[in-house]
Simulated assay, not measured.
Amino acid sequence: MVLQLAGPVTLLKSGISFPRGLSQHVWEKIGMQLHEASNSSAWWLADWLIFGETAFSGRYREAISRTGLDYQTLRNYAWIARKFPHERRVESLSIAHHAEVAGLAGPEQDYWLRKAAEEHWSRNRLRREVRASLAEREAAEGGTQEPSAGSEQAAAIHVELAPEQFDSCVRIADSYGLSVNEWVAHVLRSATHDFAPDLRVVAQ
């Protein structure tokens, strides 16, 4: 696929060459096109991997190694893409925006993405708003509900990982802009929503 940019520019793998006399209007339009392509590329890679996993099971990982793409990064993208079918993706928002709400229930995902698009929030702003909302909800539920006798108030999960596995978790969490604890809670929250919707997971 060749990216068609406005104006007489030369697009190379190593950069873009701009001719003298290029108007500001065209220059701005090129910037918007590059921004859109940057936001879309992660979705393209995610859908590419999902198709390969289905169509070429058992062979796609070898093919990925020949492309030079990072498999774990692609897996991260694919995880988000599976949470958001094409018709639920908000084109004006990046895949990183969608990652911030991927662990929520569907209606909540749609609400926050719509809000972020309408207010032109950055990924970090969306993260802050979602976390503040969840914190308020936790506080409200904690203040209005009395624990039943013998009920457990908190639970800790201890997971033993080999050093290389832990390093992999750190890299994945960092790719989302999260701490390891936050990322683990994010993954568990998503899993518990699928299999046990009433279970709440909070990063410690």
Rank of each mutant, 00 (worst) to 15 (best):
R89C: 12
A78L: 12
A99H: 02
A105P: 02
A63W: 14
P107H: 14
E62Q: 15
S57R: 11
L93T: 02
R75Q: 14
L104H: 02
E53W: 07
E91A: 12
I80Q: 07
G52Y: 10
I95K: 03
F56R: 09
S65Y: 10
W79R: 15
L49K: 08
Y71H: 13
N76V: 10
S65L: 14
R59N: 11
A96T: 00
L74T: 02
E53Y: 08
A105W: 06
W79D: 06
R61Y: 06
Y71K: 13
A46V: 02
H97V: 05
R89Y: 09
E91Q: 08
A46S: 00
E62R: 15
H86R: 15
Q72S: 14
P85I: 09
A102M: 11
A42Y: 01
I64N: 07
R66G: 08
G58F: 14
I95V: 08
S92R: 12
R88L: 09
A102G: 12
G103S: 11
I64W: 06
A81W: 04
R82F: 04
I50N: 08
L49R: 06
T73L: 05
N39Q: 04
Y77G: 02
A102I: 07
E91T: 13
L104K: 07
N39S: 04
Y60A: 08
P85F: 11
Y77E: 01
V101F: 02
A55S: 06
R61K: 12
L69I: 13
R66K: 12
W79C: 09
R82K: 12
S65P: 09
E87P: 00
A105I: 10
I80P: 00
W43L: 03
Q72Y: 11
G106W: 06
E87Q: 13
T54V: 12
L93I: 05
L69G: 08
L74G: 14
R66T: 14
G106P: 03
R89H: 10
